[in-house]
Amino acid sequence: MRRFKEFLIEKIILLNGFACILFVILIFFFLAKDGLTLFKTVSPWHFLFGTLWNPLAEPPQVGILPLFLGSLIVTLGATVISVPLGMACAIFIGEIAPRWIRELLKAGVELLAAIPSIVIGFIGMTMLGPIVKNLFHLPTGLTALTGSLALAFMAIPTIVSIMEDAISSVPRSYKEGSLALGATHWQTIHRVIIPAASSGIVAAVMLGIGRVIGETMAVMMLTGNASVLPKTILEPVRTMTATIAAEMGETVRGSEHYFALFALGLVLFVITFFINLAADAALHQKQK
């Protein structure tokens, strides 16, 4: 009886594991099925490198280059802002802050993570937009930078909590060993703790990027959604996620536009897949 129970539990866990993989495959399959239909009428080259996104034109123009670059510039901006900030915050929480400040900050960061993205978008629209507009004397505050700033806010809790975990789980003996050799606290953080926590730090950055690239609501509200090829971060851009979210509701099912949005989803899927692959590779590299 006991052995049977053991067997059953083991199989259920196994089944769950396979179910996860099955889900991914199914999702990929569905995306690919509708996404690839597009290429019956549009060449992949025109889809990937076309510079005009006008799906309502006759015939539809579905070049995603401006959308891809839009996503890229917003994501890069958010990464550049959030990683140093998040890292500094994680180090402060994990290594420097006295206990009561640490608890306060951790609670604060968790609270930040709990803010719905639409609220961040809303705050970004009413506060951040005008600040960016006035600071750089722009015609509009709805730019890639505004989106990046808001996304940085969303990525920071992810980055901080995972990095902080990684930093706190560095064995105490490393820290003491370094201090006992007369290294200062900062030298210890810089030379021992950060390298020892590096795999967790890379994971944190990757997950932060993952959060940013998939975010939709806030970017839709903040980046202006103009499908131009971005030259600077101070221009409006249109991201891939915002495009799907904004256009899926109104598209005619089975139209070229509809398939183009699925193909766009496929592109996003592939990008996320490679980001995660890169993160995995980085983690394994470190473990060697």
């Binding site: 709805l142 409006p236 249109r238 904004a246």
Partner: peptide
């Protein structure tokens, strides 16, 4: 068509 530089607001 709308110009590409048109801001599309939600």
């Amino acid at each position: 068509q709308y110009a590409p530089a048109t801001l599309m607001l939600p």
